[in-house]
Structures are given as structure tokens and as C-alpha cells.
Design a protein around this nucleic acid. Sequence first.
DNA 1: TCCCCAGGTTAACGACCGCTAACCTCCCTG
DNA 2: CAGGGAGGTTAGCGGTCGTTAACCTGGGGA
Lengths: 199, 199
Amino acid sequence: MTARTDAPTRREQILKEAARLFAERGFHGVGVDEIGAAVGISGPGLYRHFAGKDAMLAELLVGISGRLLTGAKRRLEEARGVSAPEVVLDSLIEGHIDFALDDRPLITLHDRELDRLRDTDRKLVRQLQRQYVELWVEVVRELYPQLAEPVARSAVHSVFGLLNSTPHLTRPGSLPGRAGTAELLHRMARGAFEAAVSP
Amino acid sequence: MTARTDAPTRREQILKEAARLFAERGFHGVGVDEIGAAVGISGPGLYRHFAGKDAMLAELLVGISGRLLTGAKRRLEEARGVSAPEVVLDSLIEGHIDFALDDRPLITLHDRELDRLRDTDRKLVRQLQRQYVELWVEVVRELYPQLAEPVARSAVHSVFGLLNSTPHLTRPGSLPGRAGTAELLHRMARGAFEAAVSP
DNA sequence: TCCCCAGGTTAACGACCGCTAACCTCCCTG
DNA sequence: CAGGGAGGTTAGCGGTCGTTAACCTGGGGA
């Protein structure tokens, strides 16, 4: 992945602020004027960059799901075959945690505002999400073959709930920083999977 | 707890449907006409029972937080002293799972629409939530004394995330029914706590 | 130098939404 | 058997919001 050193485009600024505001107050709770104000322009100026408010949300959600999926696919390619399934799962967990810690507003939107999308966009996002889940399920069942598929899928969803709890850990000074939080979440996720298999 | 055999009042009908709709489409995404239609009356008829749309959300959120807290306090009284801390934690987990499985819309609202409340109501709800968390933290630290308090609190929040994932397990036929789901979640929660303590 | 377009601005429209007003209609009670 | 309140109804007001229209402006090529 090539590092971004250039300044963010106006579009990117808008998306970032829109994500923050949508996460804070909900899609319907934010007006276009507020989004504009957050990037220093006013309401209708946004329409030079996006077809409408819906389009911003759609681009955000498709972007999230897409990046989660492609990131996971990449990690799987890199690790599979050359590593034990344990290591592959660790890599998936690590990737999800990185995302949850670095893009909290997006994590929040991701399972909160999906139903506000137009049919076609919603189906696309759901498909990406489903692929992401199935990818996890495969890896989990490779590591714990005794786990029935529906149980594995439920376990994966529950671990997502655990990892996505980062927005609630916002109280500052509560933990030894990002690294400590990431390590704690990682251990807990592994422990949850372990416990899912025992009778 | 005395069983309710009498029919639900109109107020209760309204609250139930409002919870469902708010959870599905967000507070701002639901109109009073829709809430009315869901209980067979039309829009402004709701104002015979509630001061306004905000009041419905407030009553829902205060009710949720209150019931969670009082339920936990009751379970703690019943179990504490006479049981090992392990059993007390199990009882807390069981209570939370029951709630998450039986009132999914409320669980969804509970961490999603809090910011839509008037200042005074929001403070009340937050206070109830905080007491509930602290109660868990105490029990967890009783069972795992080597766990530092901030770490224990983060772990509790994360386990809440895990247990509250039930709305995402909606796909029917995915699990062996309610009992199986409850048992799986319970084991995973315990496993997550176990893993939080190891170095 | 001229012009054009990317990227802004403000004004305003139409739709929607929360809420109130005014009115109606049972049913329960004195 | 009157009457009054509980619990509805419809009409409509006022405000907000997403979006469009019309206009402006500065800077980079032909």
C-alpha cells in the first residue's frame, strides 16, 4: 500500500466530516448545511462534489465494506499456505482491529445506517459484508473444524460486535493507549472463539 | 417477578412499536404518523398518550437502562455472599443475554439514539448505564483481582458489544434456537473475560 | 489578453414533519 | 338519563431540509 503524502482532496475532506457527523447524530440528524460548514463551504456547495446527501452515505458505506474485504483478502493471500490457520486468523483479527481503532466513525456507520441506502447500493454493501463474513467463517472453521458452520458464523458476528465496541471505549485515559487496547481486544477475540468450540 | 397476563395498555403498544421503528429506521427516520399507523391510530392521536416524539424515546431509553440496572442489582443481591464470584458473573451474563434476546430493538436503541435525548434525560440514562457498568466491573474484578480497573472496564464494554450483537444474528434458521444462541454467547463472554486476564 | 470552467455564493421552492386546534363520539358514572 | 372526560378524528400552521436555479469569481490555457 502506497503511503499518502499529498493533501486530501475536497471530496475526501467532505467524506471524512460527513462520516463523523453521521456517526455522531445519525444520517437524518445531520443537515447538508452542517456538512458544508464542517469543511468551510456552505450547504449547496456540496453539490459540486456529490449528487446528493444519499450519495455521500453510499460512497462511505461501499468504501468501508470494500476496504474491509480487500484488506482481508490480501491478508489471507499473504498468510495462507505459508502459515498455520492460527496465524491467518490472527492476521484477520489484527486487520479488523486496526480498522476499528483508526476509523471509528466508519465502524459506527457501517452497521447503523445501512438501511438508509437505495436498494441497489444496499445490496452491494450487503454482498461485500457477506463475503467478508464468509471469509472469516472459512478461516475459523479451518482452525476449529469441530465447529458447525452456523455456529461459526454466529461466533464471527459476535466477535465483530466485540471488536466494534471501540467507539464505546472513548473515555480518554482509560487504557494504556492504542497498542494496549488493540492487544486486549485481540486476546479477547481469540478467547471468545476458543470458548465457542468447547462443549 | 409477577407474570403479566392482562392485555398491554395502549401506551405499551405505542412504546413497543416505536422501539421497533426507531431501531429499524432511526429516530429521525420515523414519523409520528407511522408510529400511529403501527398501532392502528393516526398521527396526532399519539399526543393523548405522550407529550411528543421525544418523550417516547426518553421513556424507552430510561426504561431500558433502569430495567438493566435493577435486574442486575437484584441478581447480585440474590447471588452475592452465598455464591462464588464465578456464579455471580454467570448470573449477570445470563440476565444481559435474556435482555438482548428478548428486546432486540431496545438493545439497538440503547447505544444508538442516546444523543437524541434532552440534556436532563440523557444525563439520567448515562448515569444508569454507568452504574450498570460499574456493577459489572466490580464483579469481574472480584473474580479476576489481577485485572487493573481500566482494563476491566474496557473488557466489560467489549463483552457488551459481543452480547449486543444479537440483532445481527437475525438470519433465521442459523442457530439451534434461542437456548443454543444464549449458551453460545454465554460461553464466548466467559472466554473473552478469561482471555482478558492472561498476560 | 480573453475566456471558460471549477468551485463557490445566495435565494427560493416544494415536500415533509412535529405539533396544535377544533371537533366528534362513545362509555362510564352520579 | 344527562353529561363529561378519555381517546379518537381531520385540517392546517410553522419550521426545517434537500435540492435547484441563477449568479459570481479567480486562475490557467489557447
